[in-house]
């Protein structure tokens, strides 16, 4: 393991073609003006001419709307009102061209969906079926701050393989057994490269990291008093512009919250789960009618406190953010998590 191989670009396409026989393949595809992940059809290649996808890759494992059970309300049927699990396809799949930030995000999300106490069967089965073929960032965006968010443009965390575009050819680093398996399915020559190739990746990695100029400081978050941050006066100004839409949470690779819904049509029905957002008032509305986060400032504060304080304290593995910058790029009113993080990290009560 930890092999690096060279693939010329024609072989890359041929290998993916071969991999279709044993994997469902997903990759970035450009539609209109931006890229998003979707399942590729045989013969279709992932479009790797991109900075990053508009939506993160989280939906590859955790779809925005996922059907869990079906049921019938028809009392003439013996199985009426009984939830029956919907069969789902957990056959092997590979996500090609996922950026290192999105791959690292799966590890953060895993901390919630796969714990000794609670195991989310849908997320886990889906995740285990998935091989992540990462795509190193040679030209990170100006809004990327991954290097100060526990990640990086060539980070291997959460990845099974890392693809590096070395202009006229690719270098592919095999990181895990899943990666090894995918390599065999694709049939790329597995002769290990020399130290020179490994050195080349190292050089490109450094060059990419140096291009990242944006950063955050998170060193003091852990020692801050939760109650003091909670009461900090800056929330009023931070929250003012917020329109409380769900954009930041939906484009985020690490936001994991969902809502369970039953939907019926005639006498048949399904139970499904949909992404939810802490930006929405309904997210916290109690059955009694009481809403503990009834006003905007409380909801905005919740999102940042969760990512930058509660998560930090609960899991002890850093912030719940990988620095992909999507929320910065797509917030309709330009609320910038880097600024908020600095306000929190530097806050003195």
């Amino acid at each position: 393991m930890m092999n690096v191989i060279t693939i010329n670009k024609q072989d890359w396409a041929r290998g993916l073609e071969r991999a279709y026989d044993s994997y469902r393949l997903f990759g970035p595809v450009k539609q209109d003006e931006f890229h998003n992940f979707r399942e590729l059809v045989k013969g279709e290649l992932p479009d790797l001419k991109l900075l990053n996808t508009r939506l993160s890759a989280k939906s590859m494992v955790y779809p925005q709307s996922e059907k869990l059970f079906e049921f019938t309300l028809d009392e003439n049927r013996e199985d009426h009102h009984i939830l029956k699990e919907i069969h789902k396809d957990y056959s092997s799949r590979a996500v090609i061209g996922i950026r290192p930030c999105d791959a690292k995000a799966f590890l953060l999300v895993k901390a919630n969906f796969d714990t000794p106490e609670y195991k989310d069967p849908y997320w886990i089965q889906s995740y285990e079926a998935t091989t992540l073929v990462g795509y190193a960032c040679n030209t990170p965006c100006r809004t990327c701050f991954c290097t100060t968010a526990g990640c990086g443009p060539f980070s291997e965390q959460g990845l099974d393989m890392l693809l590096v575009d070395a202009a006229d050819h690719y270098l592919l680093k095999i990181i895990t057994q899943k990666g090894e398996k995918f390599l065999n399915a694709a049939g790329w020559s597995s002769t290990a490269e020399s130290d020179a190739a490994i050195h080349k990746i190292e050089t490109m990695k450094q060059a990419a990291e140096e291009k990242i100029t944006a950063g955050i400081s998170t060193d003091k978050l852990k020692d801050k008093k939760t109650t003091e941050l909670f009461e900090a006066p800056f929330w009023e100004q931070v929250a003012f512009a917020c329109i409380n839409c769900g954009t930041c949470t939906y484009v985020c690779p690490t936001c994991w919250c969902f809502d369970i819904q039953d939907e019926t049509f005639g006498r048949s029905g399904i139970r499904m789960r949909n992404w939810d957002s802490c930006m929405y008032p309904l997210f916290t509305l109690h059955g009694s009618g009481h809403n503990p986060r009834n006003i905007k400032i409380q909801r905005v504060r919740q999102r940042f406190m969760h990512k930058l304080k509660y998560y930090v304290d609960k899991y002890g593995n850093g912030i719940q953010c990988v620095g992909c910058g999507r929320c910065i790029r797509h917030c309709p009113v330009n609320i910038d998590i880097r600024k908020v993080c600095d306000l929190m990290n530097n806050f003195e009560a």
Binding site: Q64, S65, I243, N244, C245, G246, T247, Y250, D259, Q261, E263, M272, N274, S277, Y280, P281, L282, L285, P332, V333
Partner: peptide, 30 residues
């Protein structure tokens, strides 16, 4: 994500019809 609705000055209803839960008028999926 409701960014369109929430950026709109006209959409100031205390509870938008899509956010009503008792009864719920519209499904939440995509």
């Amino acid at each position: 994500c409701y960014a369109c609705r929430n950026a709109c000055p006209l959409c100031y209803c205390p509870t938008c019809f899509v956010d009503e839960s008792r009864p719920q008028w519209v499904g939440k999926s995509i």
